[in-house]
Amino acid sequence: MDNYQQFFIDTIPYLRRYARAYTGDVLSGDALVRRTIECAHSLINFLQDDTDIAIWLFSIMHNITLEERKTTESHPDNGVLNIDSMDISLLEDIDPEEIDIVTALAQLPAEQKETFLLVSLERFTYDEASQILNVPIGTLILRLNSARKFLIKRLLIDDFAELRAAQ
């Protein structure tokens, strides 16, 4: 495929958005994007002409995160950034409201989180998201349902949210 570099450059902002939402901070997100681009350069010869490069790149990123989850399976964080255990200095430039959504996302299981982010944040269709995640649509819908219920409970219904609303 010719001029794929331009597609890469066009997709990078969306990759960065997804990666930052997934990892929870800038540096880890950009590192994930960098690894994705490197991997994509090495795999560019396997890219079919009819493939959507954005979906392809997101699937590469998903596979990278999948590998990381496997290697860090025994880790107490389970490969997912735990905001509560992080140094608070990393969160200095984040709004309190943002901390809520970021914290809630960090507490989501990784599969639910990436499904929710692909659908709600990146606005992929269910077909595209199922291609990216390599899961059937039914599984996708179940994960999406679980993620949304968790987030609603965490952000809008729990006691902490009520306290915050009272303030």
């Binding site: 943002e98 959504i101 944040l121």
Partner: peptide
């Protein structure tokens, strides 16, 4: 909320 937080990254 999600898009408020993360859309500026684009």
């Amino acid at each position: 909320r999600l898009r408020e937080v993360f859309d500026p990254i684009v």
